[in-house]
């Protein structure tokens, strides 16, 4: 992409955003909309600054749950995918349950998990729920990736008497890397969604993450703070997404078609 393209790619969305916020501010001011219905962007900005230090611990809690759930999803997902690739029997036996876990809406499992573990340790309950949501994309994408290793390369590894472990680490895992990374990008966003949903269900101030702060601010009709917390949540999601995309680019840029710019 040339210089003009890059400039457009940054300035164009910014201009649209500025226009939108300006219009919003103007409408709120013109129609005298009360702040508990729709606060002006300037007011949200001020709330973000004023409440930042009170929102920060909540941000860190939600971030911690999200990152831990994500890390465990990657570890568990890759381990399970490797297990599947080693034994068709294990895959046949377990894969349906991974699917069931995925298709059952997390909101409907949440009350159960909160009852079972939430009373003693609400953070553990949040972690479990976020993990359930983040887990499946990793298993599904890595399983596909492990299986997509070049069959002739597999024959070659056989010819040279490679062990199962050598085949996994030196052939199947590298072949699965692009699949795993794209699964991670989906899973990273889902871990955050899972954490937020879990906090909503846990409610009642037991968990004091950002999602709880949104509910709490809503109850108190402190809509500017509600928006501020929401803003922080989406900023977190964006940062996670960008980091994972950066990682993908870093790991694949030398060899995978998806990360290499096309020469024309």
């Amino acid at each position: 992409m040339n210089g003009l393209g890059v400039a457009l790619r940054i300035t164009l969305p910014l201009a649209v955003g500025a226009l939108f916020l300006g219009l919003w501010e103007l409408l709120v001011w013109h129609y005298q909309i009360p702040r508990f219905v729709l606060p002006a962007p300037s007011l949200i900005g001020r709330s973000l600054v004023d409440d930042f230090w009170s929102l920060l611990p909540s941000l860190l809690l939600t971030l911690k749950i999200t990152l831990m759930a994500f890390a465990l999803a990657v570890l568990g997902g890759v381990a399970m995918a490797i297990l599947f690739s080693q034994s068709r029997l294990v895959e046949l036996a377990l894969f349906p349950y991974a699917v069931i876990l995925q298709v059952t809406p997390v909101v409907s499992i949440a009350p159960l998990v909160i009852i079972w573990v939430g009373f003693d340790n609400v953070e553990l309950a949040l972690l479990i729920l976020a993990w359930i949501v983040a887990f499946f994309p990793i298993v599904a994408s890595t399983t596909l990736g492990l299986r997509s290793a070049d069959h002739n390369l597999l024959s070659l590894f056989d010819l040279y008497g490679a062990t199962r472990w050598q085949i996994v680490t030196q052939l199947q895992l590298p072949a699965a890397l692009p699949y795993l990374l794209s699964g991670m990008r989906i899973s990273g966003g889902l871990a955050l969604i899972g954490a937020v949903v879990a906090e909503f269900v846990a409610g009642s101030g037991a968990a004091t993450g950002l999602a709880w702060r949104i509910i709490e601010s809503g109850n108190r009709l402190n809509i500017p703070r509600m928006f501020a917390a929401l803003l922080l949540l989406s900023a977190m999601g964006i940062v996670i997404f960008l980091l994972l995309r950066g990682l993908e680019h870093l790991l694949l840029r030398r060899w995978h078609e998806s990360a290499v710019s096309r020469e024309l």
């Binding site: 002739n152 390369l153 010819l159 590298p174 030398r254 995978h256």
Partner: peptide, 13 residues
């Protein structure tokens, strides 16, 4: 030694 019809190289290496 075996040489396949395709080069069959590991693209990541």
């Amino acid at each position: 030694g075996f040489v396949f019809q395709e080069p069959t190289l590991m693209p990541w290496a």
